[in-house]
Simulated assay, not measured.
Amino acid sequence: MTDAIRDVAASRPSGVRVLVTGAYGLIGHQTVLALRAAGFDAAPTDILSERPADAEFDASPLAIAGIEPLQAYLEAHRIQAIVHAAGISGPMLAKDRPHAVLSTNVGGALDLYEAARLASVRRIVLISSAAAYGDTGEAPVDERTPLAAADAYGVSKISSELIARAYARHGVDSVVLRPSWVYGPRRRTACVIRTMIADALRRQPTRLPYGVGFPRQFVHVEDVAEAIVAALTTPKGTQSAFNVSDGRRFPLDDVAGLICARLPEARIEMAGGPDPDDVLCGPLDISAASAVLGWRPRIGLSTGIDRMISDMSREH
Rank of each mutant, 00 (worst) to 15 (best):
E56L: 14
G247H: 09
R188N: 07
A227W: 02
D111C: 04
R186K: 12
A289I: 01
A42E: 04
T206Y: 00
A42S: 10
I158K: 00
I158R: 01
P283D: 13
V244Y: 05
S313A: 09
Y153G: 06
R122I: 02
V106P: 03
S103Q: 14
A10D: 11
G273H: 12
I268W: 02
G107A: 08
H99Y: 07
L147C: 09
R314Y: 07
P185F: 02
Y167T: 11
A72P: 03
A23Q: 00
D277F: 12
Y183V: 08
G273S: 09
A288C: 13
R202H: 15
E114H: 14
V224K: 13
L118V: 14
S14M: 05
E56T: 15
E75P: 04
I193Q: 06
V18L: 00
R169G: 09
V176K: 09
A200S: 10
N243D: 14
A227T: 08
V83I: 02
T145D: 03
E114S: 08
A53P: 07
A139T: 15
I88W: 04
M312Q: 09
G294N: 14
I305C: 02
R12K: 07
A76H: 08
D46F: 05
V18C: 00
D151N: 13
D285I: 12
G211Q: 07
V125Y: 00
M270C: 04
G66D: 08
R165A: 13
E114T: 15
Y210D: 06
L301M: 05
I67G: 04
P91Y: 07
D96A: 15
P235K: 09
G213V: 08
S103V: 10
T145G: 02
L112I: 12
D275N: 15
A291Q: 13
A9I: 02
D278Y: 14
T136W: 09
H84W: 01
R6C: 02
S156A: 11
